[in-house]
């Protein structure tokens, strides 16, 4: 299955081109031009990794990260930032973002971070699935409670 990536940035040209490049590399990419749009898409669709710009009009990157983590805590988020906002990106990591990347970014570095984030999410999903199976095996009645 392709890695499902949501890219969030208010720079339309940037996000469209980067999205095309990731699609060529076989990622399943969706874009959002604002924090609000990203939150709505996270509510409606399944994503593995989110690339999130720190500085955006309206809902900021940090506010967007908080909302996303409330809705889907297991989605891995990579903050995207200019040099001036590295501190905000680090604040994002304290709030649960996996990593950050500086703009303009090296494609290989971005891909390595997306793959690492996907591997982490898959591992967590697998652990949760295994725990659920174990619970079912040890106490079949628990399935009726859900």
């Amino acid at each position: 299955m392709k890695t499902r990536v949501l890219m969030v940035d208010d720079e339309k040209e940037f996000i469209e081109t980067l999205s095309e490049r990731l699609t060529l590399r076989d990622y399943d990419v969706t874009t959002a031009l604002s924090g609000d749009e990203a939150v709505e898409k996270v509510k409606s669709y399944l994503f593995d990794v989110i690339i999130l710009d720190v500085l955006m009009p309206g809902m900021s990157g940090i506010e967007t990260l908080r909302e996303i983590k409330k809705i889907k805590p297991l989605i891995e988020v990579i903050m995207l930032t200019g040099n001036a906002t590295v501190e905000t990106a680090i604040e994002g990591m304290k709030l649960g973002a996996l990593d950050f990347l500086l703009k303009p970014c090296e494609t290989e570095a971005l891909i390595a971070k997306i793959d690492k984030a996907y591997a982490k999410k898959t591992e967590q999903d697998e652990r949760i699935r295994a725990a659920k199976v174990e619970e079912l095996v040890s106490s079949p009645i628990s399935a009726l409670k859900e």
Binding site: E13, R21, K103, P104
Partner: peptide, 20 residues
């Protein structure tokens, strides 16, 4: 500097797409 960086990021991605 933020605005210039944004323009450079777009140029970077377009150059990358040309390489692709």
């Amino acid at each position: 500097s933020h605005e210039i960086n944004n323009a450079l990021a777009i140029i970077n991605e377009n150059a990358g797409l040309l390489q692709d």
